[in-house]
Design a protein around this nucleic acid. Structure first.
Length: 518
RNA sequence: GCCCCCAUCGUCUAGUGGCCUAGGACAUAGCCCUCUCACGGCUAAGACAGGGGUUCGAGUCCCCUUGGGGGUACCA
């Protein structure tokens, strides 16, 4: 028997980071041990489940390189893979349980149930629902069920325990006397989550149910359903939830809003992800692209490998020293017994560090290829990319070096190479250009630049050194002034490399522009 | 209320009774490198939630307390 795992997202229009982490653990174990990883779409809530809401989820997984063996787009022999198309299975299973006496129809009016629950609450009692007629013989129950709409309840056995051996938590068990008979099918015929999940997992032949720890309490009912259905239990593993940074609460859009800092919003804007008509506040409240979604990291040009590494290390570790664990190494070493029990907090700073590490490992040509779409979206490259432009992009990427952690960082450290002139930062101008003697020296050095041969980094540096010595100016002052004059800002690649990339004519022109600023 | 789960530096973690005066990584601070920014190097600060047991010996096993989380729905 081969391993079969699944991840069952609801089509919400975005792929949540916490969900990905759970899916990743399923995927890693499946790839490690061999078997099928199945994507099942939990679209019973027709209200908010539109077809187009599924695509971002599939795209997210594809971008991360998490592939599925059965599910949407790839099909499979156990389909359909949409819960909305599997309703007959739930009905069938419910009938089976009614026939076998493991379930019974419930006609209790909602008001009565509410009243009883409220009463129990008032007297600080624990309310365990059991319908009075729960032991009515099956045939009679069946008759009642077909006569008028009724919900179906599972008949929870009296006076025993129900439990399972969790791969991560160990043995967990509950007293059945504390579990009210749960509704498994609504009066309108819709199956409830706990029931549909089990029916699906059985029919999809799922062998390992790896899911977030928040589902642990649901397992008591689910185990009873497996029993009632006469099915063997799968292996359960409840992985710790992912919390928001500096918080004991689950990762959520709202909790992540604090990471939509002005800098991040500016970077998103630079990528032209959002139109200029959107205010910062509107961007902050965005559903689809926020720090709790995969799309956010993709939009900013994080390497998917870095995100996979980060999420894989969240709640799982290889040993006491390895942090950079590429996908293949993770697959080769993943096991549930090295998954932690405690919830883990998502740390954007560590993810950013990893992104930088992965970017550094990426060959130059791939960095160039990755950066181009970002320059393009920002409107800094023309429609067609000729060889000269490509060479320039390559030179810029090389000059950016380790500064480039995300692809969108190219806009931060090298955007000015592709504009008609620098956007002068007033503070930078004030600090570096409007300094005693600097504009004059710069004007004079501009004449030197006109003749430097060749117009390359080393020769330029040497020319400046000679100029400074001869004229008695500080090298640092000139270097800073040159940077601001040609790039407009105080950060970026080495200034001589910048000048070389800009070329002689553009350098001279920009220095002239700068001198008009002071 | 009741049930279940969880608990090592700010964060991710190593630790499965002696190797722990608790190791690594991110973040933080200082110094070095340096034309800025980043990278890199060195250093510093920083944790076993509390209390009881068990044991020659406890971060590690047991119990209690505290704190967090989840469930207790004709939500998923």
């Amino acid at each position: 028997m081969t391993l079969r795992t699944r991840f069952a997202p609801s089509p919400t229009g975005y792929l949540h980071i916490g969900g990905v982490r759970t899916a990743l653990f399923n995927w890693l174990l499946t790839r490690r041990l061999g078997g099928q990883f199945i994507l099942r779409i939990d679209d019973t809530d027709a209200e908010r489940n539109r077809a187009e809401a599924l695509q971002p989820i599939l795209d997210g997984f594809k971008w991360l390189g998490i592939d599925w063996d059965e599910g949407p787009e790839v099909g499979g022999s156990h389909g359909p893979y949409f819960q909305s198309q599997r309703k007959h299975l739930y009905t069938e299973a419910a009938h089976k349980l009614l026939d076998s006496g493991h379930a019974y129809p419930c006609y209790c009016p909602k008001e009565e149930l509410d009243a009883r629950r409220k009463e129990a609450e008032a007297t600080r009692q624990n309310y365990v629902h059991r319908c009075a007629h729960r032991h009515t013989p099956a045939v009679d129950a069946w008759r009642l069920f077909t006569e008028k709409p009724a919900a179906v309840r599972l008949k929870v056995p009296d006076g025993r325990t129900v439990g399972m051996d969790d791969e991560i938590r160990g043995h967990v068990e509950w007293q059945t006397d504390l579990i009210g008979d749960p509704v498994i099918v609504r009066a309108d015929g819709g199956a409830l989550y706990n029931f549909a999940t089990v029916v699906d997992d059985v029919s999809l032949r799922i062998t390992h149910v790896i899911r977030a720890a928040e589902h642990l309490s649901n397992t008591q009912v689910q185990v009873l359903i497996y029993e009632a259905l006469g099915q063997p239990l799968p292996v359960f593993a409840h992985v710790p939830v992912v919390n928001a940074p500096n918080s004991k609460e689950k990762l959520s859009k709202r909790k992540m809003q604090q990471f939509m800092t002005p800098e991040v919003i500016a970077q998103l804007r630079a990528c032209h992800i959002f139109g200029p008509e959107m205010t910062d506040e509107q961007i902050k409240k965005q559903e689809n692209i926020n720090p709790a979604t995969v799309a956010f990291y993709r939009a900013l040009g994080y390497l998917p490998a870095a995100l996979v590494n980060y999420l894989g290390r969240l709640g799982w570790s290889l040993d006491d020293k390895e942090e950079i664990i590429p996908r293949n190494r993770m697959i080769a070493n993943f096991s549930l017994d090295r998954v932690n029990n405690a919830p883990a907090s998502f740390d954007p700073a560590k993810l950013l560090w990893l992104a930088g590490e992965y970017m550094r490992m990426l060959p130059l040509e791939e960095r160039v290829a990755g950066v181009i779409p970002f320059l393009h979206k920002a409107g800094l490259l023309g429609e067609t990319l000729d060889e000269a432009t490509r060479a320039k992009v390559r030179a810029v990427v090389e000059a950016c070096g380790d500064r480039l952690k995300l692809f969108s960082d190219v806009l931060l450290y090298g955007g000015f190479f592709f504009t008609k002139g620098p956007q002068y930062d007033p503070q930078a101008v004030k600090k570096r250009l409007q300094k005693q003697g600097v504009p004059e020296a710069l004007r004079e050095f501009n004449k030197v630049l006109a003749d430097v041969q060749p117009f390359e980094s080393a020769a330029l540096e040497e020319a400046l050194r000679v100029f400074c010595e001869g004229r008695g100016v500080k090298g640092g002052d000139m270097i800073h002034a040159l940077r601001v004059a040609t790039t407009g800002v105080t950060i970026g690649p080495g200034v001589f490399e910048c000048l070389a990339i800009l070329g002689r004519a553009e350098t001279l022109r920009r220095i002239e522009m700068a001198l008009r600023q002071v």
